[in-house]
Design a protein around this nucleic acid. Structure first.
Lengths: 346, 346
DNA sequence: GTGTCATCTGAAAACGGTTACAAAATAGAC
DNA sequence: GTCTATTTTGTAACCGTTTTCAGATGACAC
């Protein structure tokens, strides 16, 4: 169903050109590089454009120019406050510089991530924002083969050859554990997120463990539990830890949601936080300062992190010089959920 | 920088065709409609495809076929659990049927929403998912002019000529208010979300008010407060309400976050919930059943709602018959935060 | 008035696919 | 084996832009 009556064109750049009495080249120039066209022409063209309600056709533009002004992002899930925030921030930034964002989710599955990347590349994205540096081997090859710029966000690994922006999770976790150690705790449990395919979770566990080791503290195997990112699972883990005859006086958590679960369950089981049990989180979500007791945690500036990731790619694409590894500072926020251990258990 | 040495093509469908010794048409067919090509050819083509690591170029495909298999969604913000969930669900569904999603945010600004819609249409989306039916006049015109299918999600308005899917917020809010009235409350305050450009919030307020009116209950002006979607603002509103010499015995809230704020602040100010004050929310977020006291609220199946929105568009695009107005059931979940009013204040 | 430059403008060839149409191959009926 | 109906394949036009290249225009100095 192609209309070959080439006489008049209903829409598109040709219609605009016809109405303004100029060539399509001029219209294109007026749109993409207004300075390259004389003011009089530009005015005529602009008038024609909004007389016709002309909307440029991005796919055609991409096809012809080989640039899409679109970035792709693959996150494990959007149903996680930290990612939702990061994406919101990234999206807002990109939109402010005239870029768009294709968002997809992988569900922590490396194969799916690879598939999504293929999908995004096929869509013509100019660059890719990835979560962490835990990827399918095929993904690296894919990115290299297609010369797609990318950045790993949420981690800081200055020694790797890939660009990244994020906080040093290992160091931050170390700081968290150090905090409860400084308070006098020696019986410390860990409730972490699932480490599989999640370098952020692993780095945090590594940081916790290093702090313990450095202080000559042993970690009984049953004091380290891994749980999915839900309040229910965290509560179950807490119930288990607190039911041990030999139980910790402090629990360091892989993220705030886990900490909330531990807090809630401890209270429910009749333990008073921080008197009977100290709890420390990681991320500093909104709830942390509203809870009662409020949660001591590690503050991570997610919004900034993701925005910087966007900046990195946009600048790189513009040919500017950019910093390959950018560290985002974390900070320990001490609130009410941590205190020295009870004397009897010191 | 165009390479005109038409002898051999490095990549693209023509390279695949050359390698497989067939025409580009056959390759295209093998890709889009495998049944239309003989098994032997298909095999040769598939082999050529992954020998070359060929990835189809979506923009070219869109340009040529006039279909993008992409939907656009415009939400006020992604930094809101309900929207994040909805989007996650929509995204997952679309991905399962081979569609992609362009996500943008409007920040509750109708002009921005219009702009984003223009953007998405320019990107070649096949359809649009919009939040509610509170849009810029220009948006309706834009959609009509460009014949873009769309659906309003999160509301139920069977009397309007536009497709929609969602719960009847007015009725649900009415149910919530009726619940506290049934418990014996006559002194009922409202803390709602900002109603400006938010038909969902308005509908809920309307439902609350209708329930009061129907039961001959008056609402003093100072007992209705509007607040942004944050715990802090909700707490401030609660502080204000509870500080009135003449204060309500129950507060109906426009959403769960607001209810959390009211709950937290009430407790902080020495009120016991539900003994001194009943609180009811709306949305049924995760926290609602974990809080202490747990929150009585209206359960809204967000995930299902957004998925149905996707289904509607995908089916319409496939030419199937579809239901224009679909209602998603809500339900009242009674938990611990509501109880009869104290005798002294009945 | 003429020549030189710089600046604007337009014609037309890509960009990488899809698809209408025609041609070729195959199958089935006699 | 011939003829027709059907299926498979190929040719080439087209989708709506950008961009190269060359030609037109205008400014300026002489």
């Amino acid at each position: 169903m192609r209309l070959t009556n080439a006489k008049s064109v209903k829409q598109g750049i040709r219609a605009v050109a016809a109405r303004a009495g100029v060539s399509t080249a001029s219209v294109s120039r007026a749109l993409n590089n207004p300075g390259a066209v004389s003011p009089s022409l530009r005015a005529r063209i602009e008038q024609a454009i909004d007389a016709l309600g002309y909307i440029p056709h991005a796919p055609a533009r991409i096809l012809s120019s080989r640039r899409s002004r679109t970035l792709g992002a693959i996150v494990p899930t959007i149903d996680n406050t930290m990612f939702a925030r990061g994406i919101a921030s990234l999206q807002q930034y990109l939109s402010s510089v005239g870029y768009m964002l294709f968002l997809t989710t992988s569900g922590y599955d490396l194969d799916v991530e690879l598939q999504q990347a293929r999908n995004l590349i096929s869509r013509g994205v100019d660059g890719l924002v990835l979560r962490g540096d835990c990827h399918h081997d095929g993904l690296r090859k894919l990115l290299a083969d297609n010369a797609v710029p990318f950045i790993n966000v949420g981690i800081y690994q200055p020694d790797r050859p890939y660009p990244c922006v994020g906080t040093d999770n290992e160091a931050a976790a170390h700081r968290a554990a150090a905090h409860v150690i400084e308070l006098g705790h020696r019986r410390i449990g860990i409730v972490s997120a699932l480490q599989r395919n999640n370098d952020r979770a692993s780095a945090r566990v590594a940081g916790f463990r290093r702090a313990l080791t450095e202080n000559g503290i042993e970690l009984p195997a049953q004091w380290h539990v891994e749980v999915p990112y839900t309040l229910d699972d965290a509560r179950e883990a807490a119930r288990y830890l607190l039911s041990l005859k030999d139980r910790p006086t402090a629990v360091v958590c892989g993220n705030d949601v886990i900490a909330y679960g531990v807090l809630l369950e401890a209270e429910r089981d009749g333990f008073s936080v921080p008197r009977d049990l100290s709890v420390i989180g990681f991320d500093d979500l909104d709830w942390s300062r509203h809870l009662r007791p409020s949660l001591t945690t590690i503050h991570v500036p997610t919004g900034e992190t993701w925005q910087r990731a966007g900046e990195y790619l946009v600048r790189s694409l513009a040919g500017e010089q950019t910093i390959m590894h950018r560290e985002i500072d974390f900070s320990l926020v001490v609130r009410e959920s941590t205190a020295p251990p009870p004397n009897s258990l010191k």
